[in-house]
Simulated scan of single mutants.
Amino acid sequence: MQYRFGDRFRILPALVLVLLLALPSFAFAGHGDAAPVKKGILLVAFGSSMPQAQASFDAIDKAVKKAFPDVPVRWAYSSAIIRHKLAKEGKLIDSPVSAMSKMMDEGFTHVAVQSLHTIPGEEYCGILETVEKFEGMPKGMTKVVVGKPLLYSNDDMQKTVAAVLSSIPKERTKKDAVVLMGHGTPHPANIYYPASQYYFSKADPNIIVGTVEGTPTLDDVKAMLKKRKVKKVYLMPYMSVAGDHARNDMAGDEPDSWKSELTKAGFKCVPVLKGTAEYPAVLDIWMDHLKVAYKHLGNN
């Protein structure tokens, strides 16, 4: 079969279209070379300098590697204070920037970054601003998707309430109160703590939410406990890890700890030193967010 000169110009656009459709399975590297898609996961926690907090991180790491057995997993801490403290002890932990830079150098083209924070506050917003800059960077990554923190949507709130309720010590009775200590923040996202109180109150009026550095405060917690006329209080972290805040500010023996303050106020306190990530039902919510983020990576 012979083609006239004009036929070549009709065939050429079709050939170009075929080539373009073949491109999505590759991420272009420099100098015209095409690098195959390489997916990875970056887990970003606030971090902790306390060895006891490692139980939460181990639980998360194990769950992620079980769900994504063939995907490389990296870690980073968003807190510079925690990283510097650990560095003095000889433990080097990447920041989100350094972790992403290393992954870029290793040839990762598609990365799901999962926030292990409780609320979409300052730390989460910092992750968004940082890691998304690596998408589309020259010789950078083709696609970066950030997974939501524990509490983000109305559905998250309801699931978290159910998960926390299922994780309360079995010996606790309905007459006993459960005080959940959250971190708190000056960021507008602090509203998630009063919102949590609303959802918990609907499920169990003796579940009370407080924060270390935001609102509701310990004074608010005391007032609610007195109003409910309870005698026994279970103290539980409303944070992914049972780190410094949980072990010192919440359950410590110092005069200004929550346990000491509430004991002086006449309540019998029972600290529960487990981070929320140590409870499978709560961890599943973070895992669901990661699965959604990873799915949205696609292949191009």
Results as ranks from 00 to 15, higher is better:
A55M: 04
A55Q: 06
F57Y: 11
D58E: 13
A59W: 00
I60D: 03
K62Q: 12
K66V: 10
P69T: 00
P69A: 08
D70T: 12
D70W: 11
V71E: 04
V73M: 05
W75C: 06
W75R: 13
S78W: 10
I81K: 13
I82W: 00
I82V: 09
R83Q: 02
A87W: 07
E89D: 15
D94T: 04
S95Y: 08
P96I: 02
V97T: 15
S98Y: 09
A99R: 04
M100K: 02
S101Y: 12
M103W: 10
M104A: 15
D105I: 10
D105W: 12
D105K: 14
E106Y: 07
E106I: 09
F108D: 01
T109V: 14
V111P: 01
V113N: 02
V113D: 03
Q114F: 05
S115L: 02
L116S: 06
L116Y: 05
L116T: 03
I119Q: 09
I119R: 07
G121D: 01
E122R: 14
E123L: 05
Y124R: 00
C125S: 15
G126W: 00
I127Q: 00
E129I: 11
E129F: 13
E129A: 13
T130V: 06
V131Y: 02
V131N: 00
E132L: 14
K133F: 11
K133Q: 13
E135Y: 04
P138V: 05
K139H: 14
K139G: 12
G140D: 03
M141L: 09
T142P: 09
K143T: 14
K143Q: 13
K143D: 10
V146P: 06
K148P: 01
P149T: 03
L151E: 00
S153T: 11
M157S: 09
M157A: 11
M157C: 08
Q158N: 09
K159T: 04
T160Q: 06
V161E: 04
A163R: 06
A163T: 09
I168L: 09
P169R: 05
P169N: 01
P169A: 04
K170D: 12
K170N: 12
E171I: 08
R172C: 04
K174W: 14
K174L: 15
K174E: 14
K175Y: 13
A177D: 02
L180Q: 06
M181P: 08
G182S: 02
G182L: 01
H183L: 10
H183T: 10
G184S: 11
T185D: 04
I191M: 10
I191K: 10
Y192W: 10
